[in-house]
């Protein structure tokens, strides 16, 4: 474990917590893409499938973190699609998730480290996570604005994988550890946030709201 991965995981936890708090406190999921949250839940379940296959005693923080990610993302989907369904902005959350899931699944079957079920699921989860934020960014571009709290969520969510890139650089240099698939997908994922990062740093930090087109 290195400082970059630690802060990356903390940033990821913060993003999940911020979103849950926003929905729970405002009792509304306006401005939140349910599809993105569904895709994240699929990512966690397919990536941590080993938790289900053979029960593991919660002996280390990693297992606990995996369970937190899975349960929090499923709970977030429950809030969006059931509890606060009336506030779900289905009309603007209109990006076709199939256009993200099918190519990720196809690519996972073509480009992977080992052609076995667990490895393919893990690879699918990595590819899907890289593009899972697109429905959320699409929704913001359709509505033309993002609530400040949602911007903080996106900043934390984007920072998590950006910090992981620093973690991979660190591990390459000190542990000669390389995972090309995760690195390439992580770079693509972080690049998708660049436009938002620019808006966040130039606007939200100064207390303004993000309004598109910028």
């Amino acid at each position: 474990m290195n400082i970059f991965r630690l802060f990356g995981d903390l940033s990821h936890l913060a993003a999940i917590a911020i979103l849950l708090l926003k929905i729970w406190k405002t009792r509304s999921c306006a401005g939140v893409s349910g599809k993105t949250q569904l895709l994240f839940a699929v990512c966690f379940i397919t990536r941590y499938i080993d938790l289900f296959l053979h029960f593991v005693s919660l002996y280390n923080t990693e297992k606990v973190m995996k369970l937190i990610y899975i349960s929090a993302s499923v709970f977030t989907c429950y809030l969006i699609f059931f509890k606060f369904k009336a506030t779900y902005d289905g009309n603007h959350d209109s990006m076709r998730a199939e256009f993200l899931i099918v190519p990720a699944a196809g690519l996972a079957c073509l480009i992977n480290t080992k052609f076995d079920a667990i490895e393919i699921l893990w690879t699918f989860s990595i590819y899907l996570e890289a593009v899972a934020i697109l429905p959320q960014l699409f929704l913001i571009s359709k509505t033309g604005e993002a609530e400040t709290i949602t911007s903080h969520y996106l900043f934390a969510q984007g920072s998590y994988r950006a910090l992981y890139i620093l973690n991979w650089i660190y591990r390459y240099h000190y542990e000669s550890h390389v995972d090309t698939i995760a690195i390439v997908a992580g770079v693509v994922q972080t690049i998708l946030y660049c436009d938002f990062f620019y808006l966040y740093i130039t606007k939200v930090v100064k207390g303004q709201k993000i309004v598109l087109p910028a």
């Binding site: 991965r5 995981d9 990821h12 990693e62 973190m65 995996k66 990610y69 480290t113 893990w122 992981y164 973690n167 390459y172 542990e175 000669s176 550890h177 390389v178 995972d179 090309t180 698939i181 995760a182």
Partner: peptide, 10 residues
């Protein structure tokens, strides 16, 4: 040899 993708990350 670079040890490739040991699944030790979240």
């Amino acid at each position: 040899k670079l040890n490739v993708n040991s699944k030790d990350e979240l």
